[in-house]
């Protein structure tokens, strides 16, 4: 196989997700009453980036062959925390942002420590920590409320140069500053290798534990960025159980749509980001076609089911579940 063919094959999932997104978005804007304008793009971007952040966080864990079912709750927790802290003078706001991000990273690190050093199954462990994070979020915000530094919020949810949505720029910045360095570092590779075959990675002397730990921690960190943006969009903190669960669920759908293998070791957060944007656009298609919003949960559920079923096709040649999990 030639070099460029190999590189193309490696990025196939990401490119497929990009194609799905572009097609969906073209259909969306073509049928939108306002058409392809800066406003439409900004609204779509602001809706999409939240899920994109969560999907990126989920990807970090999924490539290690784990899963983080507490990701939506970290998102809620950081949202509630941000609604207390990200206020006041620029200095106080900056302090608040740092604390919120640190708390997110801490939540991720706790998940990682329990899964890696406690040797618990990621599914159960993160369901349990998710309950704890939700409980803390509820303690912080028993009722929706709070506020946020509106200058910062408007700056990050508005447009740059009157056309480019600032939230998209922030998303790209996180990809470049968090995902790219991580995936190219030794630890990132160890995380991939551990997801692909933990035994082989261990035998090769890769730092799989630290790689996985870093992946879980960064997942919490990125989820906290998502939580910050949720606060910037809504100006409030709200510990809504259903919303946290939905984000966890949708993040898995986005990851699958983005060509990331749920068995670990394969895929890219960039693919997951496009998967998230595509998933959101599909949800919005219902509105431009004037369908009853009641149908949206069913529609999204069916897309999710179809997406995970499609993901199964590549695995038909594998005969045994055990081979995937080991």
């Amino acid at each position: 196989m030639k070099d460029w063919q190999y590189r193309l094959a490696e990025q196939r999932g990401t490119l497929t997700a990009l194609t799905i997104f572009v097609v969906m978005f073209v259909i969306y804007t073509a049928n939108h009453p306002a058409g392809f304008t800066a406003n439409v793009v900004q609204t779509a971007a602001n809706k999409g980036v939240l899920l994109a952040f969560i999907a990126m966080a989920q990807t970090l864990v999924v490539i290690t062959a784990g899963i983080d079912l507490s990701i939506g709750m970290i998102f809620l927790l950081t949202n509630c925390l941000a609604s207390w802290l990200v206020v006041g003078t620029p200095l106080e706001t900056a302090f608040g942002v740092v604390v919120v991000l640190a708390v997110g990273a801490l939540c991720g690190a706790i998940n990682g420590a329990i899964v890696i050093y406690g040797r618990l199954q990621p599914i159960v462990a993160t369901i349990a920590t998710g309950a704890v994070y939700f409980g803390i979020a509820l303690l912080l915000r028993p009722f929706p409320g709070g506020s946020v530094n509106e200058d910062l919020a408007d700056a990050l949810t508005g447009r740059i140069f009157g056309s480019v949505p600032a939230s998209l720029v922030a998303l790209a910045a996180v990809v470049v500053l968090v995902w790219v360095p991580f995936s190219r570092s030794v630890y990132g590779r160890a995380a991939y290798a551990a997801g692909s075959s933990e035994t082989a990675a261990y035998m090769s002397g890769m730092p799989i534990r630290r790689g996985k730990f870093l992946a879980y921690t960064l997942a919490g960190f990125v989820a906290a960025i998502g939580g910050l943006f949720l606060t910037f969009f809504t100006y409030t903190g709200d510990a809504a159980y259903a919303s946290g669960n939905a984000y966890t669920l949708f993040s898995i759908a986005a990851v699958v749509l983005g060509g990331v293998s749920l068995f670990g070791g394969k895929g890219s957060a960039i693919g997951a980001v496009f998967g998230a944007l595509a998933f959101r656009t599909i949800g919005d298609l219902l509105f431009v076609f004037d369908l009853d919003p009641l149908w949206q949960p069913l529609f999204q559920g069916l897309i999710l089911l179809a997406a995970v079923s499609l993901g199964a096709f590549a695995l038909f040649r594998v005969r045994n579940r055990l081979e995937w999990f080991l």
Binding site: F263, Q300, L305, V308, S309
Partner: peptide, 17 residues
């Protein structure tokens, strides 16, 4: 051969829908 965690989350969403 979809991981049970994923497919049951999806059917949960469909049933909800």
């Amino acid at each position: 051969r979809i991981p049970s965690m994923i497919v049951t989350l999806a059917t949960n969403a469909v049933a909800q829908g």
